[in-house]
């Protein structure tokens, strides 16, 4: 149910029913409402239109709107499932759900594969990995020679690209992360377990009867 269908709902675009979002995710209704407090804060930081644009997303990530970042852009694009150039509340909750500690590991692996498959070809290609490595080096001011970058790429593909076709497919990725579980650490946000205590003000703005939670 969208917010325009009920007089009791907040009048903002994309604010889906917390009960519905809770039923589709690992979040309780209270947690969805707490996430709305976070969403409101991010989505009003530049333009108060109830939607998160790329600039607002970067501002929330880096506390600095001028910081262009390949990875932040990629995450934004994956959150923006409807490819509208903005993230609505439903997109936000469903995307963050993947990062919930209780979400299925397979969903996290799948999301991470999409994240690194920059050109959406269904494969993580060597050129994409190189592009990401270079972006990381620029971001971190870490200095590595071209030769070292190529050595890291060689080593990575030797380990991950089992069929030696020069690219990593979904099955190879699943296998690779199972042997390198630390790569999945970024896919779990412990904050999501305590979201109601991080944003306690949701209680004052709650629209859902306690009995419904």
């Amino acid at each position: 149910m969208g917010c325009f269908q009920s007089a009791q709902r907040r009048q903002c675009p994309g604010h889906e029913d917390p009960l519905l979002l809770s039923s589709q995710t690992a979040f309780t209704v209270s947690e969805v409402e707490a996430l709305f407090e976070l969403f409101k804060s991010i989505s009003s930081s530049v333009i108060d239109d109830g939607l998160i644009n790329k600039e607002e997303f970067q501002l929330a990530l880096f506390k600095n709107r001028k910081k262009e970042n390949l990875f932040a852009n990629r995450i934004f694009d994956l959150f923006d499932v409807k490819q509208k150039g903005v993230i609505d509340f439903g997109d936000f909750v469903r995307a963050l759900n993947v990062f919930h500690p209780n979400s299925p590991h397979e969903d996290k692996v799948d999301f991470s594969f999409k994240l690194y498959d920059l050109d959406n070809t269904g494969f993580i290609e060597r050129l994409e990995v190189k592009q990401m490595l270079i972006a990381l080096l620029c971001e971190s001011e870490m200095k590595l020679s071209d030769e070292t970058v190529e050595t890291i790429l060689d080593k990575t593909f030797l380990d991950a690209d089992v069929n030696r076709d020069g690219k990593i497919d979904k099955e190879e990725w699943q296998n690779f992360v199972s042997r390198n579980p630390s790569l999945m650490k970024i896919m779990t946000l412990p904050y999501l377990r305590d979201i109601t205590t991080t944003f306690p003000s949701f209680v004052f703005n709650s629209e859902v009867d306690e009995i419904a939670t």
Binding site: L61, F62, L115, L136, L189
Partner: peptide, 24 residues
């Protein structure tokens, strides 16, 4: 860093650390 695989390095990017979204 030579001993690390590329994804270990990439996963250290600040742009992939969504935890900062929750910092006020």
């Amino acid at each position: 860093p030579v001993l690390m695989n590329a994804f270990e390095l990439i996963s250290t990017s600040q742009g992939l650390n969504l935890g900062t979204l929750f910092e006020k």
